[in-house]
């Protein structure tokens, strides 16, 4: 049971107790899962581009990075279950109304593709099939990087649900930023131009869309500015914007700048996921985010009914 909040005068509640249940998910597992999944998905796009543009070093490192990241994300996802040994029950059904079900299927498609293309590249076997898998992983990777916005938004958690139109774009930008940043840090400068561009483009999309989400005017959006979530999101912007500016200006010239700034952009992306996660949790703990908007909606509907009846 969640602790009660101090009762306030502006709205009615039951002893200030929360109406919603706090998410059972742990921040490290689920925010970490969303970050690692986004990193993997967008990195596969870089890998696919690299395999057709004669950037062998970028290709190899991206393919290995994508495989590492998706493995880490799968571990986090299974670890977060109350009954991890029943993980495979996720594949009992395919339900379009359940983003987690869809996500499990997307992951079961993406994971083997990413793995096969990395294996083919490293072992030097079946190069054609390996490249085809690389393209497949890039397409599936786009779904891996964006469905997580729906995963969070398709809940009763006020902050997440209220942001349902923006979240897939926030996460898409953030995924591209992290993938570009990490690849800019890993690959030699001479091959990393697409990675730098992806990092900068992703950072712009991430920043613009998260500002839009934070200024939606919905009551729940205040959780994105307050407390731990607010701190995480402010830090995120500092890292993302600072890293992107550095990459754009100096990434071409220096491996050191490229590495430091690339990792900064990726850190900004990770901080964003943790910030959004924490803000959602905070919005379930205070009944105000449920009662105030719903009371307004109910009163408005009652006024309209009266007007129609009178």
């Amino acid at each position: 049971m969640s602790p009660r909040r101090g009762a306030t005068e502006e709205f009615t509640s039951y002893y200030g107790r929360p109406i919603l249940k706090k998410p059972t998910w742990s921040a490290v597992d689920i925010a970490g899962y969303i970050f690692a999944g986004g990193l993997a998905g967008a990195t596969s796009m870089l890998a696919a581009g690299a395999q057709y543009s004669a950037r062998p070093s970028l290709e190899r490192r991206s393919k290995l990075m994508a495989l590492t990241a998706i493995s880490a994300s799968a571990v986090a996802l299974v670890h977060d279950l109350g009954r991890p040994e029943r993980f495979l029950n996720m594949l009992r059904v395919a339900k379009p109304t359940s983003p987690m079900s869809m996500g499990s299927w997307i992951l079961s498609l993406y994971g083997p593709l990413a793995g096969a293309s990395a294996a083919s590249n490293v072992l030097g076997i079946l190069p054609r099939a390996g490249r085809a898998c690389g393209v497949g992983a890039a397409v599936a990777g786009a779904a891996v990087a964006t469905y997580t916005g729906v995963l969070l938004a398709d809940t009763a958690v006020p902050t997440w649900h209220d942001a349902h139109e923006a979240l897939p774009f926030v996460f898409a930008g953030s995924a591209a930023a992290s993938a570009g940043g990490v690849a800019a840090a890993l690959a030699p400068v001479a091959e990393a131009a697409p990675a730098r561009r992806m990092a900068v483009g992703g950072a712009v999309l991430e920043t613009v869309m998260s500002l839009k989400m934070e200024r939606s005017g919905k009551l729940s959006a205040e959780t994105l500015h307050q407390g731990r979530a607010g701190t995480l999101l402010r830090l995120s912007k500092a890292f993302t914007v600072g890293g992107a500016v550095g990459l754009a200006l100096g990434g071409r010239h220096s491996r050191l700048v490229s590495t430091m700034c690339g990792l900064a952009v990726a850190a900004g992306s990770a901080l964003l996921r943790f910030g959004v996660f924490e803000a959602g949790v905070a919005s379930t703990l205070d009944p105000k985010y449920v009662v105030v908007p719903q009371r307004e909606r109910a009163d408005e509907a009652a006024r309209q009914r009266e007007a129609a009846g009178a």
Partner: peptide, 22 residues
């Protein structure tokens, strides 16, 4: 949810186009 899936599809398509562009 239909709106959300549409937004995600748009974001995914945007990502792929962006990847080609870079």
């Amino acid at each position: 949810l239909p709106v959300m899936w549409k937004r995600a599809a748009g974001a995914a398509a945007g990502l792929l186009l962006g990847a080609v562009a870079v």
